[in-house]
Design a protein around this nucleic acid. Sequence first.
DNA 1: AACCGCCCCAACCGCTGTGGT
DNA 2: AACCACAGCGGTTGGGGCGGT
Length: 245
Amino acid sequence: MVQQEVRKGPWTEQEDFKLVSFVGLFGDRRWDFIAKVSGLNRTGKSCRLRWVNYLHPGLKRGKMTPQEERLVLELHSKWGNRWSRIARKLPGRTDNEIKNYWRTLMRKKAQDKKRGEAASSTPTKPSSSVHSSISVSSKKHEVDPHGSKKAGEESFYDTGGASTQDEGEGEGEGEFSMDDIWKDIDMSEENNNSFVYGESEEGCNLSCPSASSSWEYCYENLRVMMDEESLFCPMSEPYFYALNG
DNA sequence: AACCGCCCCAACCGCTGTGGT
DNA sequence: AACCACAGCGGTTGGGGCGGT
């Protein structure tokens, strides 16, 4: 009825603060609910996305390590475009991030290929050499705040490399030829599973860093904001009881 | 200095899966 | 068993920044 128009587009700092605070209160689950009670005129979906892809304290940001790049390639060959699944194996990385990374990588490859064909007489880049490390030294953002990614290795799984085992889900993870990496990841998962703000699901491997300063800063500000503006004080709302009682 | 093109990332959209009633 | 609401996923797009001309 009074329903204001749903906000879209980039999030403001204030919105972020609000969202973070409400997730802190109610956990990272009930997005529709959070969207409503927070007063953000956003959809639950939008809130979730913002949290998962940007605000979650466990996010790494920055360049993918060569290890991560390799892992992405491997996992994609195994599972195809199951980004969220792949993301679960990369602590601190989001499906969106991986998806974007992959997309960029594929585009570069496509371009390289084209160029190679253009210079057909002498194909300079034999893209057939699987796992030859192409260093797509993409000029861009070499030092950008969020960091850029550079390509890992070669291997052509366009976008559904999954064909091999895909649905098998197989979880044949054991026989994966990347034991070291797996161990690494398993360990990091075990170590990071204790995230305070939400009962992250099995998959949510956004590890909680030793309190990222930006996170603390953000949360502190929130408290202040809520004090000063006494934002609808969710504590006093029936919602609070509904959830906690 | 201005313009153009490319690249990256954040965010949206539509569909599917899942749990509750 | 059917329906509904919500969460999650994958695909796609638009904006902004950077480098090159």
